[in-house]
Amino acid sequence: MLDKRVLGNEGLSVSKIGLGCMGMSQFYGETNDEESIATLHRAVELGVTYFDSAENYGPFLNEKLLGKAFRGIREKIQIGTKFGFIFQNGKVTGVNSRPEHIRKVVDESLKRLDTDYIDILYQHRVDPNVPIEDVIGEMGNLVKEGKVLYLGLCEAGENTIRRAHAIHPLSVIQSEYSLWERNLDDVIRPLLKQLNIGLITFCPLGRGFLTGTVKKAEDYTTSDFRSLDPRFKNENFDSNLSITHRVMELSSEIGITPSQLCLAWILTQGKNIVPIPGTKRRKYLEENIKAAEVILDESIQQELGNLLNNLSVAGPRYEEKMMSLIDR
């Protein structure tokens, strides 16, 4: 069974590896609800307690999937979900974190999840048109009402985090972080340590790039997010393979898989960090969970920490429109 980690000031305790559920319903090719539900059930058997969703995943389909899968075992697991987008014809057309919209979305999420409370509620992306104080004020009201237990923000910057935390304690920040994406190191991670806020890290395997099992962007169908990923395109793909090859070499030397190496490294970065690798298949889930048993010696940790000193990452992590939504 997985050990747990305590995140934040409010006593939130989750499994040291969680499960990102987005790909079960969107963005990573064809879906298979039967296998996804089997994967969710297997995760519970292996000791995973934290499952990450959002109204945006589907949209709406992923929350329904989790509600169906966890019926009757809700007390064994923790669900994080997110609000903050406007949808038209199933596509995101903008952001909306007005207090009345937050309340509406949370009530709808509760119905889809078939539950009367959400363990962690996140603002999915910062809304520049609504003061964060108003956003957190309403989220705090939902905590008082028992509809939400803990609060978090996704991809928030230093100023936003400080202002939000002053209104109501944040338990977690969620952001992309991995061996090849270190954008949090200079400012955000020291800030979270100072304020005693946990960190949930998505895409810890670089959307699969670091595992050595991916293809170029043009080889994916349009239903797969990676067809638009700048790091998977053309010469960026070829350049970034040098990072993957080094990860594969090191993992082979230790006798573990590349994904296990990537996850084990993240777990060495602090007791307040929990990665949530996404998968919709049991075999990859089981492989990922075994990373919690890996012990990396200091020399390997140092080499991985210095990986980007010698190898550079080609391309931004999102295309321009999505990058514009990140509060940093």
Rank of each mutant, 00 (worst) to 15 (best):
Y57S: 08
E253W: 09
S259G: 14
A38V: 03
F225R: 11
Q260I: 12
T221E: 15
L192S: 02
G157N: 05
V14Q: 04
D107T: 11
N196G: 02
R207K: 14
G58A: 09
E249G: 13
K91W: 12
S252H: 14
Y318R: 03
I79H: 01
D186Y: 11
R282F: 04
M323H: 04
F51K: 00
L19F: 11
W180Q: 08
N306C: 09
E10G: 08
V95P: 03
D229A: 15
A217G: 06
V92R: 12
E287Q: 10
D127K: 08
Q269T: 03
K283Y: 14
P99N: 10
D33M: 08
I17V: 14
S312T: 15
Q174T: 00
Y284P: 04
V135W: 02
E303G: 06
D186I: 12
E293M: 05
V92G: 07
K321I: 14
T213V: 12
R281H: 15
T49R: 04
D107M: 13
K91P: 09
E286G: 05
F202K: 06
G315W: 10
E176P: 04
H245P: 03
R125C: 03
R281G: 11
D127F: 10
G11V: 02
S97A: 14
G137C: 02
G58H: 06
K68V: 12
M248K: 14
R74Q: 04
L263G: 02
P258Y: 13
I200P: 01
D224T: 10
G206K: 09
F83M: 05
Y57R: 06
G140R: 00
P275C: 10
S171D: 02
G157T: 05
E55N: 14
G212T: 07
E138W: 01
